[in-house]
Design a protein around this nucleic acid. Sequence first.
DNA 1: GCCGTTTTCGGCCCGACTGTTTTCAGTCG
Length: 561
Amino acid sequence: MNEELAKIFYEIAIYFEMDDVPFKPQAYEKAAVVLETLSEDVEKIYKKEGIKGLEKLPGIGKNIAEKIIEYLKTRKIKEYEKLKKKIPVKLGELMPVEGLGPKKIKILYKKLKIKNLKDLERAALAHKIVPLFGFGEKTEKNILEGIKFLKRNKGRFLLGDILPSVRVIYEKLKNLKEVKKISLAGSLRRMKETIGDVDFLVVSDKPKIVMDFFVSLAGVVKVWGKGATKASVRMKAGYDMDIRVVPEKSYGSALQYFTGSKEHNIATRKIAIDKGFKLNEYGIKKEEDVYKALGLPYIEPELRENTGELNNKLPKLIGYDDILGDLHVHCDWDGGSNSIEEIAEAAGKMGYQYVGIADHTKFLRIEHGLDEKQLLQRNKEIDRINLKFKIKNLKFRVLAGCEANILGDGTIDIEDKVLAQMDFVIAGVHSQMKMSRGEMTERIIKAMRNPNVDIIAHPTGRIINRRDEYLVDVNQVLRAAKETGTILEINASPYRLDLKDTYIKKAKEAGVKMVINTDAHNLEQLSLMEYGISQARRGWAEKCDIINAWPLEKFLSFLKI
DNA sequence: GCCGTTTTCGGCCCGACTGTTTTCAGTCG
């Protein structure tokens, strides 16, 4: 519901912008952002607290609250319908085309009746756009290229798909002798789960050399926006990269500015105005000093979303080196690539103190799930390995676990007496994902009430850009987790990142403990931990919230039995 | 349309670049 409304408010904002209505566009856009990032369902808020509850939300006043209620009641907003009727275009298709904004879309509709991407492409190919006032040859060409780009890349890129290759490019730039300083900026520096493009910020006295090097990097297929200090390129892999070169004395302010988010920047600039000065990307050398000037402590990039970081006490975020063990690793017993010993060795090299083997269990035949007998056999092997470590006087420990299945009725597919022999038990939903909200919630809570179940794997089941969360009442799950002492997993796979950041924040607030797990099926995937940590940081998590940042004894004593 | 440790009225983030114009509106981040 929140997302539906957010989409409508975005579009209302665009319609107002077409008509040059002042200030309303920003107001509606703000409301849309608030709804999008709200973890509570607006319908619930309305049922519980009425219109007053809605008006308490930032950016939502009487008028927009009434529109929300109108939508809840009738599934329609009259004013939106009116605006749509006036200019009935598919904004969701046309707005993503680079170079097209509200004004141009309005002209295209008025003059050429262009309503969607198909109309637009047809008109551009027939050269009908060139003669329009305010348009020209280049605009038409850019529109065609924009359409081509959209067709190839639907939506944003997954952080995990982009970051490894970006790091290679980062090193190349860093090694250039004209580059004095370099940093990633934008959504990549904030470690968002999906990113729009890649931003580099560079300090150099010779911007031209840096820029020439940048636009001639291997993989660049298109260059535009090349001015004295900035340029953009499109990579063969489909994503865009921007670079900005600034003098040393502006590095801090530029880094703060280019890291964003947009909402965070708008808010920081308002704070600056209140304090009687103006904030732009120039003139401050160190990023901390920007925040100091605003009267704020340094804010970690992962927190910069204007979701409370500017007016609340900041958490001491869990660090990228704080994890002491990975508790969700599949070994070759369930079809994973590596033996338990190989995994233990790799985990030890990563500086971990323990690693938890969590193979699939029997219900998941397709993943070679282990039955009770095989689990116990495997545990014997783990015992042997631990004994070997002990003899060698190594502190490292392998923990025997499993990733058992929560069946449709909330029971676990492995007998309790075997579960009780595990060091820890992860349970997850891997089947019947289309249940009703009530049923799914009850099912998961029933599993949490099993005294052998310590951790719930990927608690909402989403696959980013591919599969929605299962219908589950997260608030109820959090309450039950707190009550039963069940730990919720933050699955670090860049395709899942489940829990997502807003739920992590809620879990922390509810006093629920979490564990960051890679769900690795091979040694390379052990390094995915970084994505889980960044997600936890985006959810304001501290070391005390994440049990695998705790030493072994403390963590073991927190488990149920 | 929202918001308020100066305000219930009068403010609302900032700059670069493009493509079209011939001084600037639109778009982007």
